[in-house]
Structure formats: C-alpha cells, structure tokens
C-alpha cells in the first residue's frame, strides 16, 4: 500500500503505477504508447472524481489529514507575495506551530497567521505537529493587535490537531491564551477572514478563528472534539471514530447548513493535494473577493455585524 494514498484512494494509486510503468516501457522501446497513457489518464481522472464524489465524513477526516495535504506554508507563497515572517510572543518564546507575518494579498498589505503542521519528521517535531502552546496564541494576538494599529486586515489559516495538551502548556495558561484571543478577536477593529484549510480541532482552532467571515475548504473538517476522542467517550474505543464522525457533523456541508460556516471553497478533483497551485488560486480569489466585500462596510458596522453573528450562534 502506498502511504501517500489513503485506503479508499488505493485504486487511484494502482492506476497511477500502471501509467508510470507504461511510460517507462515507452521510453525504453520506441513504441508510441501516448494514446494508451492518455486513455489511462482519462480513466484515472474519472475514477478520482467518482471516488471523491462519494466520501463519507470519516473519509473526509482522512483527506483533511492526508500526508500530502497542503499546509499553511504551502499556501502562503502561492496566495500572498512579499511575506515577512514575524516571530515571538515577547513574553516567553516563539512557537513554530503558528506562523504569522506581514504579506501582500493582490498588492494590499495584510497580516497573515496560520497553524503549520510541518512536513517531514524533523519539521513536524519542530512545529510540534501543528499543536500550538500558549506562546503561539499570544504571538497571534500580538500580530492581530499590530494589524489593528496599522489598519491591516487579518487573514487566518486554520489547520491544527488541537492546542498542545502538555504540562508546560497548562503551566503557561493555554486556557487563558485561547480565551483572551476569542475576546480580543471579537472586538478587533479590522476585518478578519478565516479559512479552515485542513483540520479545525476545537478550541485550538477557534483560538485564531473568530472573525467576520469563515470559510472551509471542501474537504476540511471542523469539530469540538476529534472523532477518536468522541468515540472513546461514547463507545470506549477509538475504532468507532467513523461512527462518531458521522454523528458529529464536522464537514463543511453540514456546518454551512448550521450557519456556522459562511462559505465552502471547492477543492480540485481528488483533493487539494492533487493540485496545490489551483487550490491556492481559489483561496486567493476567495480572500480578495471577501476582503473587498468587508471593506465596503464602515468599521463600526463591520464590528456590529461580527458581534451580532457571534451572538446568534445556536439560535434558530
């Protein structure tokens, strides 16, 4: 089994191996196999579309955690230009699980902040697998307050398995760090746009996710507890995670239906990892359009609208 493909993606992996083999044979022997390869590619495209048109919530959880899934640092250079990363919370440390800094979106200066899981073992360890500690949230808050002072919109990219559950996290007040961000973001006097690009896990995700507009990529997830955690509580085994995923309503479709998510950004056929450039293009277009919309509102109206939206969560 190819580890870069999920279980339900294995037929795609097999077909791609065939295409590759055929190409190798072709280059060895002067036979024109272009037509055959083309046919297989078409077949593969249809197969991918077919598989992806029928994903269960649990499949979507797996796509959101796909080993090849693009992360914040894959998107930043494609969506923005001129990114200058800024570091540190000014109190304790620089948390590499959250990256942030000044950048330009279609020429306009913005503050961009996102969780980064890290690719490759070393990077993953350095970035704590995208699990921020208090200093990460405090760095994010510092950057957001800076954005407010200099009238820059804030864009956040959400992708985390959760805030880090460890002794040091608790010692330095992870609860307070998240809570303070929620309070500050609810009143920050500049537009805030958030996009869940992968996993939106609970308070750790929300800690950079309160704002004026919330979108999810088509195969991103957003939940209050991981499906494994939910299954552990209810069925006492994480093996029931697929059932939990079904019950929890963690997909963009359901969350948009509940009025919590404002928009879903369509992914390329077979998921964002199959065409990062195309995905980045769509995210950029989304951000440019949303920002233009939000900028039309006077700041007081924007803040009132954000507050009313927050107050409405859960009401019919």
């Amino acid at each position: 089994m190819n580890p870069n493909y999920l279980d339900f993606e294995q037929p795609i992996a097999e077909l791609e191996v065939k295409i590759e083999e055929l190409q190798l044979v072709g280059s060895d022997n002067d036979i024109n196999i272009g037509e055959e390869v083309g046919k297989l590619r078409d077949k593969n495209k249809k197969l991918t579309e077919k598989i992806y048109s029928n994903l269960s919530p649990w499949d979507i959880v797996k796509v959101a955690r796909h080993p090849l899934r693009p992360y914040t640092l894959d998107y930043i250079p494609r969506v923005f230009t001129d990114f200058d990363e800024l570091h540190g919370d000014r109190h304790f440390a620089d948390d590499n699980a959250i990256v942030g800094g000044l950048a330009r979106l279609d020429g306009e200066p913005v503050m961009v902040i996102g969780q980064e899981k890290g690719r490759g073992v070393q990077e993953k360890v350095r970035r704590n697998f995208g699990m921020p500690k208090p200093e990460g949230y405090r760095k994010a808050m510092r950057l957001m307050e800076m954005a407010e002072r200099f009238k820059l919109p804030v864009i956040t990219l959400i992708d985390t398995p959760g805030a880090y559950p460890g002794i040091d996290s608790e010692e330095r007040g992870i609860s307070e760090a998240i809570a303070r961000n929620l309070a500050v973001m609810s009143h920050l006097r500049t537009p805030i746009i958030s996009v869940v690009i992968g996993e939106g896990s609970s308070g750790g995700a929300l800690g950079i996710g309160v704002g004026d507009h919330l979108a999810m990529l088509q195969y991103a997830t957003y939940f209050v507890i991981s499906p494994e955690g939910c299954a552990n509580i209810i069925w006492k085994t994480s093996e029931k995670a697929p059932d939990a995923a079904e019950a929890m309503g963690l997909t963009s479709t359901i969350l948009q239906g509940l009025g919590i998510v404002d928009d879903t950004i369509e992914e390329p056929s077979g998921g964002a990892h199959r065409d990062i450039d195309l995905m980045a293009e769509r995210i950029k277009l989304h951000l440019v359009n949303q920002l233009a919309e939000l900028k039309k509102l006077p700041l007081d109206d924007l803040l009132a609208k954000r507050y009313d939206k927050l107050m409405s969560y859960g009401s019919d």
Binding site: S186, S202, G203, F223, V224, L255, L258, Y307, Y313
Partner: peptide, 18 residues
Amino acid sequence: ARMQEALISLMQMAKTSA
C-alpha cells in the same frame, strides 16, 4: 463544551468571550 451540539458548542466559547 457539549459534544452533542458539536460546533454550536464550540461557538459558545466565542460568544461568551465576546
């Protein structure tokens, strides 16, 4: 947060903090 209300529960965190 109450698991059975999923993201609606999570959003109560934002609401009460606001």
